[in-house]
């Protein structure tokens, strides 16, 4: 549904985005991670046809964004990273305006989205809190049930309850066959909803993988509980394993990549329990950023 080839945007000497190749199929959710200025917003705005590429192309549902922006706009729901709406309009009137521009949206759909997100439709947008304004942005992106969603930092300003509701809405869209590209610097949020993660750094995609695979590349922390004294020398000899500490009969270790060698080495020893700490994407993120880039 979304495909970019060598998508590049430069502002003078600044490389905002460099050679992005990406494909998101119907029902796929890709989360962009990266600090501010990494190119997430640039990539999303290029695909939304709001800025033009310096090189390369972007397609939505087979339509080239530069050549056929109307066809693309008819198929996307877009939320900008700094969503702003006419402050003098009520949320309801504003949403009706954008619905008119889209050629009509079922009012019941708007009402149901507003109810789920607890958005007061009758209030003027200028009087709404930041979080409620963000909800207006979410509703306008979702209301037409488009086949493609482009969401830049969608949950900013939302409280945890609403963040969960939002993730539910995205899961529904995905199940409907919607292709979703969303960006965030909140890792848990991307982890919760995306099936793939792309990490951008200084305009380049430095990693693009399934969430599970990206986890596999991570350093994993294990607590190994032995029946007797821990065989520290044996464990320390396994490649990729580092002992962080020992408490009583427990060894706290860090394993890089696969744990297969460690499991094999532990065979002759009486292991009572293994506690695995699920690797946090933040750790992967930080390890990828360790060489040079400044993490968020």
């Amino acid at each position: 549904m979304i495909r970019t080839r060598d998508l590049t945007k430069r502002y003078g000497a600044t490389h905002a985005l460099e050679g992005l190749d990406l494909e998101i199929r119907a029902g796929g959710v890709l989360g962009f991670l990266g600090p501010n200025g990494a190119g997430k917003t640039t990539a999303i705005r290029l695909i939304a046809g709001l800025i033009r590429p310096s090189r390369g192309s972007a397609e939505v549902a087979g339509f080239d964004v530069a050549r056929d922006p109307q066809a693309v706009h008819a198929r996307i729901g877009y939320l900008s990273g700094e969503f702003r709406a006419y402050r003098d309009l009520t949320a309801e009137r504003y949403l009706r305006y954008l619905a008119d521009l889209r050629g009509g949206v079922d009012p019941a759909r708007i009402a149901s989205l507003a109810e789920r997100l607890d958005l007061p439709l009758r209030r003027r947008i200028g009087e709404l809190s930041h979080g409620n304004r963000q909800k207006v942005g979410l509703v306008q992106a979702l209301m037409a049930d488009p086949p493609v969603l482009l969401l830049d930092e969608p949950t900013q300003g939302l409280d945890p309850l609403m963040q969960r509701e939002f993730l539910g809405l995205i899961a529904e869209a995905r199940d409907r066959g919607c292709a979703v590209l969303l960006s965030s610097h909140i890792l848990s949020e991307v982890e919760a909803v995306a099936d793939r993660i792309g990490i951008l750094r200084a305009g380049r995609l430095v990693a693009l993988d399934a969430v599970d695979a990206l986890r596999g590349r991570a350093v994993r922390r294990l607590d190994l509980v032995f029946a007797g004294p821990p065989p520290a020398e044996v464990v320390a000899a396994v490649p990729g394993v580092r002992i962080l500490g020992t408490t009583d009969r427990t060894l706290h270790v860090e394993v890089e990549g696969s744990t297969a060698a460690l499991v094999a080495a532990l065979g002759p020893h009486a292991v009572e329990d293994v506690v695995s700490h699920e690797p946090d994407l933040e750790e992967i993120f930080l390890s990828l950023y360790a060489d040079g880039g400044e993490p968020a």
């Binding site: 008819a74 969503f83 521009l101 889209r102």
Partner: peptide, 14 residues
Amino acid sequence: QEGVLEPVLATPVP
């Protein structure tokens, strides 16, 4: 410059 035009320009109206 206020940022309110962007959502309008992302609709199918040329």
